Simulated scan of single mutants.
Amino acid sequence: MRIRATVAALSGALALSALTVPAAQADGPSFREEAAAFAASHGAPAARSAFGAAAVGDLDVSFSDFKIAKTVKVGTTNKVSTTVTYKIKHGAGVDTKSEDFATGPYIYKGSYDAPVNLLLGDYAATCAATSSTTANCSGKIDIYPAYGELINSDAGTWKGGALALDYVTEKFADEGGLGSTLVQRYSRLTVNASPEPVKKGKTITVTGKLSRANWETGSYSGLPSGQSVALQFRTSGTSTYTNVKGVKTAAGGALKTTVTAATDGYFRFKYAGITSTAPVTAAGDFVDVR
């Protein structure tokens, strides 16, 4: 079932995110579940989204130096995790080593005040103190495409933020707009060169298909026609592929072109990718030229 964070309140956004993934995926309450429970039980003090560009909350914690992978490639079934590192600065009264303190990163799609989707990690980040009021933290974003966390329009740029909770003082700190990443639909590419073997000077037909993850159906579907793909060739006994020609996809991601047989070697297709779709290179298909 698809659940999207379309509400503006902190409690609603966190609660929806927590409900997306079964609790069995984590050993005990996950960070996303704890954050949702905290926000729900404490009424989201600021009454605004947890996922925005400005710091909100009354816990004396601020975030900086947020680092995340440039791209996160997500298929249809396997869990995908990406590590995020960031720094926190906190007041002397905040005990980051306490079991009642938790912090973690998140990414969100859309605006700070009205995110259309958000993703957190199963577990809170771990932090190492660098002084009495600073620490370096590392946490993960965990994505479960098989549980409907994403729809196809979610592909593209997501912004990053971080959240901190203190269960004793009942305070929180949250800040968005700390970084960005591309969440892309994983892609597949096939190639077949025939006939094989083939006489020198004869025509070789190279076919294939370019497809990508469809997060809404849980399967792979062909890309729209007109996608640019490079046909490459590597002579047998060498290690370098060179471009032969550019090829455009037809309906359903189909690829087809012809070349003249010259020498033994491997043909492959290579796709550079687009904002929504990850790049991919097919494994080479050997042709015996006689």
Rank of each mutant, 00 (worst) to 15 (best):
M1Y: 11
R2W: 01
V7A: 13
L19H: 07
L19K: 14
L19T: 09
P22W: 12
A23M: 12
A24G: 14
A24K: 14
G28F: 12
F38M: 10
H42A: 10
A47S: 15
S49E: 02
L59M: 15
D60W: 11
V61N: 04
S62N: 14
S64L: 10
K67L: 04
K73E: 15
V84T: 08
V84D: 03
G91N: 09
G93F: 10
K97T: 14
D100L: 08
F101A: 07
T103W: 08
G104K: 00
Y106R: 02
K109R: 15
G110T: 06
Y112K: 11
N117I: 02
L120F: 11
G121H: 00
D122S: 07
A125M: 05
S131M: 11
A135F: 05
I143Q: 00
I151E: 06
A155Y: 05
A155Q: 05
G156A: 13
T157A: 07
G160M: 10
G161Y: 01
Y167R: 14
D174A: 15
G176H: 07
R185D: 00
S187F: 09
L189W: 07
P195W: 12
K202I: 01
T207C: 12
G208A: 10
K209S: 09
R212A: 10
E216V: 00
Y220E: 13
G222P: 00
A230C: 06
G237N: 11
G237Q: 02
G237V: 01
V247E: 08
L255K: 03
L255I: 04
T257G: 06
A261Q: 01
T263P: 01
F267C: 04
R268G: 03
K270Q: 07
G273H: 03
G273T: 00
I274A: 03
P279G: 00
D288M: 02
